[in-house]
Design a protein around this nucleic acid. Structure first.
Lengths: 370, 370
DNA sequence: TTGTAGGCGTTATCAG
DNA sequence: CTGATAACGCCTACAA
């Protein structure tokens, strides 16, 4: 490709640039600004009424085969496509659901979005993704946004709203809540058994012989939310094993990124605190810990065992591979989409909010000794 | 949270489940199936014509303040929201652009999508994401999908279509091509200077003393596409340095995942081929290589240096951290969205297809000795 | 500065 | 089985 030899950042005209820019209506240019074909035109060409065309398109069963064929040919010939705006206006339905999440660049959410899109496809609807950037104000915005009228309902995964904000979830469109940030709202809620998951993670470390288990990613003062719930599970597991909880082993990390996980681990090491395991409250934190431990030549799992939470794809490919808790992402996505579509399909559904916790399982890998 | 103590996978009714399911019109239930408020109702309440309401909403400047205020109050009181379907139908514009890519779970695409969404926001439009699953047939589907009528234009990142398929890009809606799979089509195309990037990556390894540079991720028989172009850059760099190209150092990997990168590296080691560097044609492959080298206790960068391509976030947090080529993801996203919006805004734009290559830079990290 | 009258492309109703 | 015709909610001329 000679194109690829151009200097970087260059802007050039492509192959068709030398065509005369005459405005003749049939210039075989990039694109004809021809108005879209409508049902009327199809109907005219097929010599039927517009209603018949509609019937054919919507698979209405009782149509004479000959008619149907004629219509289909006309559609082909004219390259007719239904106009979604018109259809939606008429049907009062957009065929699109919204998915509001913090950031696609966070692997957990990218993988969740992936599953949501697959689930949506099974229902024949599209997904409009919106970022909140993990900003509280934008989480509120999303709930009231003009974009809501582009969608029939919303899957909402807040990260910054607090329990007090649960009132904001009272909206006049179908809404399904995801995650562990808000509970008891007036909407369907799909999440995972977080406390148990964290308990199982901690128990796994204990079972492998760990006794001084550091945990990173705590959020001081939080009472619900992933951090609080997972920390809870950690506490429960320690208690069950009769291991005292040592505050110096609990480390904060505001954003759950690798960098903050590495930072927390660095401090742990610098502070000279003794520990034989690290529980990263999510995989990114745990991977950051793995990174830092490697830098300091601390043997994993020999001297320190590490476990994460979320089972993102990377966990299987770090060195050493990372043990983690696998939440049922697919189950969560499917259930959430099912609920949403059910609410959309039957707005008169007088059914109280549902609450579902997806199952999880422990994935034991090298970082805890396989 | 007591909720979290429920058995996994449990489905339960939430707090409001005990409310009597009476169908009284004002039951403060989850959602009132009340029909949406229309402009007419707002107009009636504000005692103005529907046109005035429209004017207020669309920021028409010449409105008496008192009138405007009255209308705004009515909108507030009634909770009026414009109906996007109706507006779109009327305006012939959806305010939504499509983004078709292989898979969000691939970090590069997640990060790209993230940037595209940010760029779209600057233009006030939403993004409808569609998966192709890197399946050729679905790539064609996306171009002709019914969903196209939900969007004003499409950003398309194919991975499997071949150069011969370039004809399929002749469509009657604004389309901007991304990536390195198809060239010379009748549409705007935004990509990066791949060949140069790969050449720079290889040159970087050579500069660091490498002479037997393995490359993983080749696609036999491919002439365009990321694999072919990057391999090209590799060849050029070797040639420039006067280093002979050794076929046994070039390894295939169909899917560019970590696992395939690890596999290719394993074979390389098992075959007893001597090499002092690995160029992964993308970061996932390189990270897979890193993983495998670690497993085999091969010192990186001491004995083998490794470089990747794409600069995904993980590259900065692997152990050791991964050197890579950083494409201008943000520049690509912005340019692509700008082009698309320009085409959408001026359909009569008689401008030949544009071709842009975004700039890149080399990110030197530990895996090549810093 | 505001009101009236259509029509955007579809689907639903209801005859024929 | 198929054809008129009336909405769906909004916007844009054109009038007033």
């Amino acid at each position: 490709m000679t194109e690829a030899d151009a200097p970087h950042g260059d802007v050039r005209d492509g192959p068709a640039a030398d065509e005369p820019p005459r405005a003749s209506s049939h210039t075989p240019l990039t694109r004809r600004p021809r108005a879209a074909v409508t049902m009327h035109e199809v109907a005219a060409r097929a010599r039927v009424s517009i209603k018949t065309v509609s019937n054919v398109i919507n698979g209405y069963p009782h149509i004479r085969p000959a008619t149907k064929e004629r219509v289909e040919k006309a559609i082909q010939d004219l390259g007719y496509k239904v106009n979604a705006s018109a259809r939606n206006l008429r049907r009062g339905r957009a065929g699109v659901i919204g998915l509001a999440l913090p950031e696609l660049a966070l692997p957990y959410f990218a993988e969740l979005a992936d599953e949501v899109m697959k689930a949506a496809e099974r229902h024949g609807v599209s997904v409009l993704i919106e970022h909140t950037g993990a900003q509280r104000s934008r989480e509120f915005d999303v709930l009231r946004s003009d974009r809501r009228s582009l969608t029939d309902g919303l899957l909402f995964s807040p990260l910054e709203m607090a329990q007090d904000d649960v009132g904001a979830l009272t909206v006049d469109y179908p809404l399904v809540l995801l995650g562990e940030r808000l509970f008891g709202g007036p909407v369907d809620h799909v999440t995972m058994a977080t406390v148990e998951g964290a308990r199982a993670a901690t128990a796994h470390l204990i079972e492998r012989g760990a006794r001084r288990i550091a945990v990173i990613g705590a959020h001081e003062g939080e009472v619900v939310g992933s951090a609080a719930l997972r920390l809870n599970g950690y506490r429960q597991a320690l208690k069950e094993a009769g291991i005292p909880m040592r505050p110096e082993l609990v480390r904060e990390a505001g954003l759950w990124h690798r960098s903050t996980g590495a930072d927390a681990t660095r401090q742990l090491l610098d502070d000279g605190v003794e520990f034989d395991a690290v529980f990263g409250l999510n995989d990114a934190l745990a991977l950051g810990a793995l990174h830092e431990l490697h830098q300091r030549h601390v043997d994993v799992p020999g001297r320190v065992k590490v476990i994460g939470f979320d089972d993102i794809e990377d966990a299987a490919f770090s060195a050493p591979t990372l043990s983690t808790i696998s939440p049922g992402k697919q189950q969560i996505a499917r259930t959430a989409v099912d609920f949403l579509m059910e609410r959309i399909g039957t707005p008169e559904l007088l059914l109280g909010p549902r609450y579902v916790e997806a199952a999880f399982f422990v994935v034991a890998r090298e970082s805890t000794g396989g």
